[in-house]
Each structure stands twice: as structure tokens, then as C-alpha cells.
Design a protein around this nucleic acid. Sequence first.
DNA 1: AGGTACTGTGGGAGCGCTCCCACTGATGAT
DNA 2: ATCATCAGTGGGAGCGCTCCCACAGTACCT
Lengths: 351, 351
Amino acid sequence: MVVHGARGRSGRRPTLEEVAARAGVGRGTVSRVINGSPRVSDATRAAVEAAVAELGYVPNTAARALAANRTDAIALVVPEPETRFFAEPYFSDMLRGVGAALSDTEMQLLLIFAGSDRERRRLAQYLAAHRVDGVLLVSVHADDPLPDLLSQLEIPAVISGRRSAEETLPSVDSDNYGGGRAAVEHLLDRGCRTVAHIAGRLDVFGAQRRIDGYRDALRDAGREVDEDLIITGDFTEAGGRRAMTELLARRPALDAVFAGSDVMAAGARQVLREVGRRTPDDVALVGYDDSAIARHMDPPLTSVRQPIEDMGRAMLDLLLDEIADRRPAVSRGLDKRQLVLPATLVERDSS
Amino acid sequence: MVVHGARGRSGRRPTLEEVAARAGVGRGTVSRVINGSPRVSDATRAAVEAAVAELGYVPNTAARALAANRTDAIALVVPEPETRFFAEPYFSDMLRGVGAALSDTEMQLLLIFAGSDRERRRLAQYLAAHRVDGVLLVSVHADDPLPDLLSQLEIPAVISGRRSAEETLPSVDSDNYGGGRAAVEHLLDRGCRTVAHIAGRLDVFGAQRRIDGYRDALRDAGREVDEDLIITGDFTEAGGRRAMTELLARRPALDAVFAGSDVMAAGARQVLREVGRRTPDDVALVGYDDSAIARHMDPPLTSVRQPIEDMGRAMLDLLLDEIADRRPAVSRGLDKRQLVLPATLVERDSS
DNA sequence: AGGTACTGTGGGAGCGCTCCCACTGATGAT
DNA sequence: ATCATCAGTGGGAGCGCTCCCACAGTACCT
């Protein structure tokens, strides 16, 4: 049983009206001060602020949300099971970036997992209730229905990565093309002659762009691209092993491998060791993600670093913009809504 | 074709009033149906439910929160920097338990970090605004001001662990006494003669209880407790190393060590290896927490497991109770508000 | 002098819901 | 027959805020 008004005994929280009375001004004026409107004289502002301090006034968020039709909250939606969230540094870096950018605002961040079907239904319900002003969507797969649901509900959203070159939603991506290119150029600089590539899943746009970078780096160096040197893995260690084995069978003389993820590089490294090829002397190796694995491999793995934390920060900024000038999405140009941040090579001993 | 949610391009969401009109009933009746009140006839209920479905009605949470003076949200407060949150499996297990219990309810969970002073101030502000109906407080230190702030604001709260034997707040703890006891009994069963204990920080109540368990297990087995065999570490690896070194100096003949955490056990193991003592043949070792470290040590570490996930679930249940019968806290007995869950020994090869 | 443009301010009119009281008509007790 | 009782219902009165219109006052033009 909920006892309505049981708050009678202890100090009831002061309302706007009471602050107004105390400061000898109108309700509207107090509201203006609270919300930082410039249209208030300094004297009045000071009086109101004094009253707020004396009464210990704290705005009632529910009332504000109802009247202003906003919630001052955004959601970070992780369409993965919690396990992956804790396992991969990607998410904690992202969260740190978003959190940092958020601390300058009054916004509240909600973390929502939507790994299972059940959780996804709950999320849909949640979004339909418009309980957040905007959504940050990380780790979206090409065929995820979530982005469409969001545009249908007209909820501002920003995604990390792009689903394709024609991404319609505001997004923040890292320069996968440039990253792939840098990795290969580095290997060529080191004097490698035959550079193979273990690519990630092709339904991930970033993986495709890394392949493009690989191809162009070779071409621009005057090499021909040997398609047999490109094998698709699936971002797993086992996939990396399989790919490496196959590569060695196809081109035994290869002397460098650029893997589309550190985890796949780790798999490849195992196979190389097993067949007695040294790293980097016989086969140089470069990974992608600059994850903890890279630092702990033997030898430490050269890898391409994405500025995840900066990406998180950028995503939040984009989202806040999006929320601020909320208007028919079609009326806006796409120019500044797609951000691409640079990826950088971190050189270690594997190359 | 059923148009789910007949709201057009306008995007306006249907209100209670509109549902009432559609169903040909009053506002109050719809509210009763939505909130599952039993005082509605079956026929009326069906009519309302049909109208809700046709219009795609979703309650406006802000309006509800304002009128009912509740938020339907609770916070999981982590008084630690985010880094620790991601590093320690404790938190992810806890989160999983809470999340599981939560999915049966309409409640929303907020994850709040309060590691830095700045974040703590923000949190205080947040709590003062009563933006949550209750708080789950994990990893509280003995001198943390947060619990007091919560009772002052009359916000229902449950903490994990207890600050002392006289804990006043509702809490869920694991049986640290029993866990410590089980560890030592196990070592004695294995035939160990001289069992040492590396204790955790003494301002953590659970660490004290583990010492009590250690003492009683020895006494009950007819052994005398040698106080020189108890050394306080600080839950860190370095602390474990220091403690082990000191123990070997004091009692070179010891043949078993019960460490108050896996991390300290890892430190102890390093020292033992360095001085050429084998595990478990020369010195048997038991840790606490059953963390990932335990499984990955060489040899795998016997450790005491706390049912963290269950504890999370229990904490949520307690909190929901607390919120439900919100009334002067003094009027309630403490009987069922302090829960202690069993800890179990997981035997591996280190003992 | 009148006109125009601002700045600063007060307060009415909601936002969409829950709570609660008043009311109806049926049922049972006397 | 009369009076309680009670399940079922409708709708008024807010909850505490924001939005916006109205308006006083001041300043600066003609």
C-alpha cells in the first residue's frame, strides 16, 4: 500500500512557488533564473539565488519533464549481452568518453543492455514511452532493426560506426580506411614483400573499409593486389587460426600479415609459432584495436588504435546537437552529422 | 492491416483521456486498468484494453511520477572509479543479479559511479532531487557518508556487506565467518598442521569475520590459535607478498595459508615460488572470492565463492520491499532486513 | 509630443497522470 | 420494507513545473 502524502511529517521539499514568495518575485522569474535565462536583472537573480539557497530548493524533475516534455536523460544502448560489455575494453572506453562529456551537462545517462530478445522488447517499450531524450547506439550490426525503430519514434540517435557508406543516422566512426592503409604502409616500409590480410566479417562496414585501405596501400606502392592474400575471418581467435593456416597453404612465402583485429592476430600468431615461423623476422604481424591482448602478446603486437574515448565524447556532442535542434530530420543536411576520427598505428615488436 | 499506434505523422502520443473516450469509460477507470486494480469489471477491463491496443497507448511516465510522487527507478551506486567497476568481476556479477531480478518489474535501473569527489557531489544533488525511489549501495567502506545521507533524505536503500555487526541499514552480506571457517577446516582435513592467515583490511567488516572463522575453526579442531600466524594485508597483490614474506620469517615451518582474497593469495604464491616452496605439497593455499585469477593461477587456486549474483537479486528484493512499505524506519523490526547468504568452498589444486 | 523597440517581470493555462470523494445500483441483513 | 454495505464507476482537484502572453517601464528615435 502506498501511503499518499506520508511525507507530511518530515520537511516537504520546497516548490518554485515558495522560492518565488521568499524572493518576492513571480514564479516565472524563478523559473528563468533556475534555467539560466539571460532575461533577468542581476539584482533579481541574486535575490532568487539567495532564496534557493536558504530553502535548499531542488527542482522537481518529474514536473519539469511533464511541462517541458523532455526527460534530461539519454540512453547508451548496448545491443549485446552484458558479458561482452564487461569483456571488451571497447565499451568501457566508450562509456568513459561519454561520461566525461556528460559531466558538463545536466543530462543523466542510462545504460541499457539489449542482448536477448526479451531485453529488446523491453527496450522497445521503453523507447515508445519516450523515457529518454536521445539514444547512443554502440556496436550496431548491419541488419539491426533498432535504428529504424528509433527514427520511426522520432527519437534523436547517434550510432558508433556506420552500417554502410550511405548511413542516414548521425554517426561517429573511426577511419578504418586510413587505419588499414597505415598498417600496410608500415609493413611495406619495413621491407615486407608479400603482405596478406585477414579481414573481419564483411557485414561490418568497417571491416570492408580496412580491406579497401589494404588494397589502396599496395596499389599506391606499385604492387599488384593478390586476391588470394585476402581471407575473411570472423573476428574470433579460431577464425584467425583458420585464416592463417589457409594463407600459409596458399602462399607459403608470405612475410607479413595485417589482421583486422587483435584477437584474430593472436590466432594467427599461434599458427605461425606452431609451424616455426618467427615474428617479426619471418612474418611480421599487425593487428587492429590496440586492445590489452596486443600489449600482452609475445612479442607485443603492433596494432591500429581507434580513439574510442574521443568517439564516445563526439557521439554525445552530436546527440546533444541533435536533441537541441530537434526538427524534421529531413530538413537537415548530412554534412556535419557523420564524423570520422583518425586511427593511428601503435608500433610494437611484432613488425 | 492493423495500424499499431494510430498516431500519425504528428507524433503526438495518445493520453489517458483519449483512451477513456475511445473505451467509453471515465479517466479513473482507465487508470485503474493500467495499474492493475482489481476493482474493475471484466467487461470494462476488456474494453479498456482494446482501446489501449488500438491507440497504441503508452503511459506518460513524467505525468505519473508527478502525480504519484514516485519515479519507478532505482539506482545502483558504485562508490568507486569506473576502472575498478570494469576490472572486478564482483560488480558485473552483482549487476547481472540485480538485472535478472529487475526484469520481473517495471522498475528502471540506473548505474551511477561516484568515485571522484566531483561525482559524489553530483550524486548528492541527484539524490536530493529524489530522482530515484531507492538506492542499492555496493562496496561501502566503514566511514562512507553516503549511507547517512540516504537515511537523512529518507530514501530507501540497501547495502551490500555490513559496515559493522550493528548495521542499521537493510543489507545483504555473504557468510564471511562460515567462509573463513570452511577454508580452514578444509586445510585441516587435508592434514595441514600449521595454518596461517593473511587477513584483509580490518576496516572491512567481512575481513574481520573471516578472521573469526579462522580462529574458531582452529579452536574447534583442538588447536591453539597462534596470533603470529595472522597478518593483515590490504587486499592487494603487494600486500599478499609482504604478508607471506613476513609469515615465512616468523614461522618457517608453516604448511598452509588461507588468504582473505585471491589477489593476496596470488602475491603469496609468488613469494612461495621464489623461495622454492611447492604448492600444494609444501604449502597449501586457499584464497577468497573465486575470481578469474583463481582459475588462472598455477596451480588453480582453491577459493571461497560468494554468491554475488544471488546477493544482487536479494538486495533488489529487499529494496523493493523497503519501497513498498515505506514508513518510519524505526517502526520496523530489523529481523528480515539483514540477509546473510552462504559462502562455499571451491576446491582446486592449490590445497 | 508620439511612436517604436526593447528588457524585465507576473501569472494564467496547461502538461497527463493519480488520488479520492461522491455517486449508482445491486446485494444482503434486519 | 428499510437500512447497510459494497463493487464499480466518473470526474474534480491537484502534483510542480514551463510556456507564453500581457504589460510596465525605460530608452531612443522621429
